[in-house]
Design a protein around this nucleic acid. Sequence first.
DNA 1: CGCTTTTGACCTGCGC
DNA 2: GCGCAGGTCAAAAGCG
Length: 260
Amino acid sequence: MVATSLTIDLNLNPLSTTDDTPVREVEGFCDVDDDNSFENEVDDRRACNLSRKNNENKKLKEMLTGLLDNYNSLNTHVKKLMQDKEELESSPKKRKFDDTVQQSSWKRPKEDLPISGIKRVYVKVDPSDKSLVVKDGYQWRKYGQKVTRDNPSPRAYYKCSFSPICPVKKKVQRSMEDDGVVVATYEGEHNHRSTQQEVAYALANEREISTSERWFNSPKLDEVLVEQMASYLSKDPNFTSEVAAAIFSKISQVDFFEVC
DNA sequence: CGCTTTTGACCTGCGC
DNA sequence: GCGCAGGTCAAAAGCG
């Protein structure tokens, strides 16, 4: 929700006003001389407001980029934790189930996929929500659904939308033990960035080419950046909830966990 | 109109 | 060889 409110409150369109003069960022600019005419005073106040808003916008943008950075580092951290757990918890208890999953997945001769790279992720969802959707930052195309013998809940089969370039597939099925948990089994590694990573990358590039001065004095750049963000957010309504979930999971360390 | 989802049919491997 | 179960295909339907 943080990101959403940011896009709403950014108010980055002082530039859309008819005044095309560059914004001046001068310390103490807001001090209005009592001897000025009324018109000058109004102009000064406008300029003052404008510069204040620009400052606010700059701060908000910094917060947003910081948020994205945090989100990405959290994502990396979670992935690392998943891999660690996967290695630690390959217990023989579930051997039978895991074997069937792996064998049935990889024994097909027409697909020469590696045996490594199978990850199972448990995600908390609303039990009343029957859709088998796991928000993981990638775009998926559903290509099948099947009711399996060991679980009354149907299993959904997805391919990464970037296929055949990206070979990753995932199976999503509601957990038998807990109706509020969805089990997502990922097969393979993505050979491209997630949509969130794309935005972070774009922002990083933006920051590389823009000095702090340009942040201040290049309203066009601000506009482009915000448009970029707004366009992305409008396209992916899951983004904000994912960011919120990532932050929340960092705090609680409960919502998002993985078991082999 | 193009993309995504649904769903029944088909394919493949395994166990008996 | 047959039946079963999981996985995939592809035509039809749905949707924006």
